[in-house]
Amino acid sequence: MGVIKVSVRGHAVEYFPGQEERFDFPADKPLTIRQMLDILGVNPLLIMMANVNGVKRSKDYTITAGDEVLLFSPPSGG
């Protein structure tokens, strides 16, 4: 079984298990970012945007082992 490398930028990291901003997510089959967040117990609405392998993707994009996923917290105004 491979892993998806996940990074979380910003304050939403406090809602992730262990509050880790970088972690490996075990992936035995493809799944969407939204499904991964559900498994992690994180409300997908806490994530503003996602990049997969450096490309902006929706939360419904399918990811698989070996992918690098960057999840963005929403900025809090200007």
Binding site: R9, G10, N51, F72
Partner: peptide, 8 residues
């Protein structure tokens, strides 16, 4: 070194 630093 923060994840996604350059994306902000």
């Amino acid at each position: 070194e923060k994840p996604g630093f350059e994306e902000w």
